[in-house]
Simulated scan of single mutants.
Amino acid sequence: MSTMNENENRVMKHFDRNVAILFAILSLAFIVLMGTDHVFFEWAFSRHQNILSWYIRPIFMIPICYFAFKRNATGISATIFLMFISMFWFPKPVEIDPKVADFLAMERVYLTQNWTITKMLVTSIVPISMGLLIRGLWQRNIKAGVGVLIGIAVGKIIWSVAEGGASGAKVIVPAILGLGICIVAIVWWYKKRYLKS
């Protein structure tokens, strides 16, 4: 019986790893497409002007944290892919907030021009922080996970205001609201599942 369970676990881990790799490849393909296809890049950014895509993206942290707790690589990888493509889920708005347009214009320039060593190092903070978040929660360290989440939100706000000025302030409300929802959801779930009496 134990041998059967061990075999099943091995098969499931193998499946989980392979599907996670598939979604990682899809995420990489999306990044390459954004960097090489100008038409697709502009189409995606035109839809990203819909402020709903700004509010939904931080919420993806909830399933990422959940799957990290469950040690489910497929769930993590699939959620990251969905988070990437969520920028164009909503239609291009009829009326565009000038500050939103200004901020996205800055992001366009940031992503397409002058990739210096400094910019690469700064940008690498994003995958590094996501890795730290996943690692912390994979190890069931709730304090580390929440701490990294706060760091991600604060870092996003600081970068947005530093690079975008007044237009960057449009990120503050979605970032703080998303952070609050994520922390409440994570703490509630953690207490319910792991701190039962």
Rank of each mutant, 00 (worst) to 15 (best):
K13R: 15
R71F: 03
M87K: 07
L149I: 02
S77M: 05
V100K: 07
I128G: 11
F81K: 08
E107T: 10
I157V: 12
G131T: 11
M83S: 15
I186T: 03
V148A: 10
G131I: 07
Y66I: 04
F40M: 12
L111C: 01
S27T: 13
Y110R: 02
Q49G: 09
M87H: 06
P91Q: 05
V126D: 14
C182Q: 14
A44Y: 10
I150R: 03
M87A: 07
P58V: 07
R135G: 08
N9W: 04
V19D: 05
N9A: 11
M87I: 11
K119W: 04
F69C: 06
D97L: 05
H48W: 01
C65A: 13
L26S: 02
E8S: 04
R47N: 15
R17T: 08
S86Q: 13
I59Q: 01
T112M: 06
S124H: 12
V184E: 00
L28Q: 03
D102A: 15
I125E: 13
I134F: 05
V154E: 09
I25D: 10
G180C: 03
A29M: 08
W189I: 01
F60M: 02
D102C: 09
R193G: 02
R193L: 13
I157A: 08
F90V: 08
P93Q: 02
V122K: 01
G151T: 10
R108M: 06
D37H: 04
P91S: 07
L121Q: 08
A44E: 10
W115N: 13
H38E: 12
T123C: 00
G155C: 04
G164W: 03
L52F: 12
L132S: 08
I85T: 13
Q49Y: 01
G178C: 08
I62D: 04
K196R: 05
F88M: 08
I56Y: 07
K119C: 10
G180L: 03
G35C: 03
Y66T: 04
V109S: 05
A44M: 13
K119E: 12
A153K: 03
T74G: 04
T36E: 09
H48G: 07
A105V: 00
I181G: 05
I80L: 15
R135C: 02
Q113P: 02
E163P: 00
N5Y: 01
Y66H: 09
Y194G: 01
N5D: 02
T36K: 13
S53E: 04
V39S: 12
I56M: 11
V32Q: 06
S167Q: 00
I80K: 09
L179Q: 06
